[in-house]
Design a binder for these strands. Structure first.
Lengths: 266, 266
DNA sequence: AACTATATTGCGCAGTACGCAATTTGATTA
DNA sequence: TAATCAAATTGCGTACTGCGCAATATAGTT
């Protein structure tokens, strides 16, 4: 196992170029050639040619006559036009299936879409009575487990910015009414790692969902299971939430990982 | 001038790697090794090693035992954590200044931030009476020229998703009241290229703003000028909007360009 | 204006990355 | 289940790319 290090062939100059990209992207200040050269441990001229190549392609940019580098718009464009939800579905589907089958309940995968949560994938269990939740359906962020999991990292200010000052629409008697209450719940979700839905959007259903995070910590989606309250009892929360969290963690690793992703599939 | 082609040294393998990234990012389907090899005009093995390098770093990913490539999360992470507004300010500031001085009025630079427009930079003109609009200020998207410029590409559905069904808050007697009206205005903005604010947010001020687009077309910010209605008259719209549009175009080119950016700074 | 630090270009060698060919993997058909 | 085929992956020697060095240009400082 330990012997298996570095058997993956890799292209030196491409690798260096990617290091430059990541360095510039994580720096708050423009990065100078000298810094790049030192970082890579190569000559200034080499760093220069790498950086120029990235600039030619629009991945780096040198603003207003300056010599130091900031990110160019190519990364912006690529990232924006790419269909990330599709990517997420592809990576997560196996896990989603395993979750649904393990608990024998419907499992959903969701992402944030403006002020709503959008279900982008689901696996149904072998039950006659299931919680529908079609793929493609939009539901409010503040009144569903998935939605709240997606909001987990927002603070007061960000929540207000997102929802404005209008009162929150009430769907059931348990729907959260105010932003402060929502903010408090977000804290809880961050701490314990999962969100619940006590029939807050639809009567008679319970749901647990956990945020999916990249290794950088940012939330990119949510995964969870839903079932009629008659079958999904409150005492199931501990065990169910545990599995949902594990599943979210696994997907996060699949997304972030690169090397490892190959190993475990073998 | 024409002789100056290709004098910029560039690193072949890095350049090829970037081509792979762009190809994968713009493809709706996962991309196979064969396709990459053909695209680059190199041997399968070469394409393989390039792709592996990108995968090792998390820029590409191979979902669930598949062999074909999709984008990895590295790009997602980098793009999300990067402070794009800062980048925009750096690139656009010169132009913003030129615009403000050219028309001798206050010029603003804004981006979208949830349901608001956020002013990220401004240059004031030499007037005693100016429109304040501090950098850092949040204003509603639907009742300001900047906001509407930022919304220009949204359709009915997207607008509803963003604002929900709550009625729009009224600030002045000219504030837009309904989403259909807003949607119609978006069409106009797309067609003529600029948005106006007829004292829709604050009494006694006029404003013209144009969306800043990357070469891919996506709107990343807005630029415009504001002034008291007493000085900024309706008859100024044609000339002012023309200059604002030109300025937005210029900034879009600066953002998208790479080669050219170097030439004009020389 | 002289000086310093940094960016940029030219050049020749060394090492990297390329293509070829062999091997493995995995999917499809008999 | 074996046989067949297509695609991915690995090994290896060579040619060319990309590297460092040193020279030059550029910009910022005193």
């Amino acid at each position: 196992m330990a012997k298996k290090v570095a058997q993956v062939p890799f292209i030196q100059s491409l690798d260096r170029g990617l290091t430059i990209l990541q360095t510039v992207a994580t720096s708050t200040q423009p990065v100078t050639l000298g810094e790049l050269s030192e970082l890579l441990g190569v000559d200034r001229s080499s760093a220069f040619r790498l950086a120029q190549t990235l600039r030619r392609r629009g991945f780096l940019s040198t603003p207003a006559g300056r010599k130091d580098y900031i990110l160019g718009s190519a990364m912006w464009t690529l990232s924006r036009q790419y269909d990330w939800s599709n990517m997420l579905v592809r990576v997560a589907h196996q896990e989603l299936k395993a979750l649904a089958q393990g608990l024998n309940e419907t499992a959903h995968l969701a992402i944030r879409e403006g002020r709503n949560a959008l279900f982008i994938d689901s696996v149904h269990a072998r039950h006659v009575i299931v919680v529908a939740g079609q793929t493609g359906e939009l539901v409010p962020l503040y009144s569903t487990a998935h939605g709240k999991a997606l909001l987990a990292d927002l603070d007061d200010k960000e929540l207000r910015n997102l929802f404005g000052s209008d009162p929150l629409q009430k769907f059931t008697k348990t729907t959260i009414k105010t932003l402060p209450a929502l903010s408090k719940e977000c804290v809880t979700i961050r701490e314990r790692g999962y969100a619940v839905d006590e029939a807050e959007y639809m009567e008679g259903t319970r749901c647990v969902a956990a945020p999916i995070r990249l290794n950088s910590g940012i939330i990119v989606g949510s995964i969870g299971i839903s079932a009629p309250s008659s079958r999904f009892l409150k005492e199931h929360y501990p065990s169910h939430s545990k599995r949902v969290i594990q599943c979210a963690k696994k997907i996060g690793e699949l997304l972030s990982a690169s090397e490892e992703a190959a190993e475990q599939s073998a």
